[in-house]
Amino acid sequence: MTPIAFRIAHSSDAAEILQIYAHYVEQTAITLDTVVPSIADFQTKITTTLERYPFIVAVQANKIVGYAYASAFNYRNAYDWSAELSIYLLPTMRKQGLGSRFYSLLEDIAKAQNITNLNACITYPRTKDDPHVTLASVNFHEKRGFNLCGHFHKCAYKFDRWYDMVWMEKQILPHSDSPAPIKPFNQIAKQFFS
């Protein structure tokens, strides 16, 4: 099997990344976007995210096979020590350990940034036989040490059905009475990427 390498995303990756995301928009309720964003929107998302957080791609045989990024849990400054994680893989790359590799890397980066809490916002199916989403993401996060901390009922509507949303969280650093300031990703990126 061809090895997988991780690197920082570039705005020029937007079209290839968007091909991965489009599947999730059009075929699943994993994301609750209902319209595939434009390439320009994704270029902006990449560059804006990288101003503060990591946006990482996994590359195999010169092809992007997945991407993951961190983002603000909330825009207010008091929430700076919490970040939300997102990950999307080519469907053929699921259940091969790539998600865990991404999350291990993102957790290490978050620790280097002095982030204490990681959060995940996850679509939760209302029936066991939902054709658009399963409990796979909830189970994945539980295995990674995340705990369920919020459940919102029938708060999203896609594919002519209502979906619940859950929040999961993981503490990755101790909570100090005087937390160290958050380091923007560009200040610590060289620790992880040459």
Rank of each mutant, 00 (worst) to 15 (best):
I39N: 09
K158H: 05
S12V: 07
I188L: 01
I188P: 02
I115V: 14
N74E: 09
Q187W: 01
P37H: 06
N119Y: 13
C149Q: 05
H141D: 02
K111H: 01
E16D: 15
K128A: 15
L98M: 05
A22I: 04
Y79E: 03
A40R: 12
D108F: 00
R52F: 11
S82W: 03
R161N: 03
H141L: 06
F42Q: 15
Q96G: 10
E51F: 00
S104M: 01
T123Y: 00
N77F: 13
W81C: 05
A110I: 00
I17V: 12
G145C: 02
S38M: 12
E26W: 00
A83N: 09
T134K: 01
Y163I: 05
D33Q: 13
M93I: 04
Q187R: 10
I4M: 08
Y67A: 04
Y103M: 11
D80L: 14
E142K: 15
T2I: 11
K154N: 13
R161H: 07
V65E: 02
D41L: 00
V35M: 05
L32Y: 03
D80Q: 15
F102T: 06
Q43F: 05
T92R: 08
T2V: 12
K111L: 00
I87Y: 03
F102C: 02
K154M: 09
I182T: 10
Y67P: 00
V25T: 02
H141E: 04
S82L: 06
W162Y: 08
T48S: 14
T44I: 14
S178C: 12
P3H: 05
D164Q: 06
S38G: 09
K63C: 07
L148G: 02
I30A: 09
D160T: 09
H132I: 06
E169W: 09
T134N: 06
N74I: 01
P3Y: 01
H23E: 08
Q19I: 14
H23F: 15
D129H: 10
L90M: 12
K183Q: 14
A180E: 15
F193A: 10
Y69E: 04
I64G: 02
S137C: 09
A61T: 08
E16T: 14
T47E: 15
L90W: 04
A83F: 02
F146V: 10
V166T: 02
T127L: 02
L105N: 01
A15W: 00
F192T: 07
L90V: 10
Y69T: 02
E51P: 05
L105G: 06
I4P: 03
V65Q: 04
G99S: 13
H153E: 10
N147I: 14
T116K: 08
Q43H: 04
P179K: 09
A78W: 07
E84H: 08
I115C: 11
Y124T: 13
I20E: 06
I188N: 01
Q113V: 09
A110W: 03
Q96E: 06
N77Y: 12
S137V: 09
T31M: 08
K154T: 11
A156K: 06
V133L: 06
A189G: 00
A14D: 06
Y75W: 10
R76L: 14
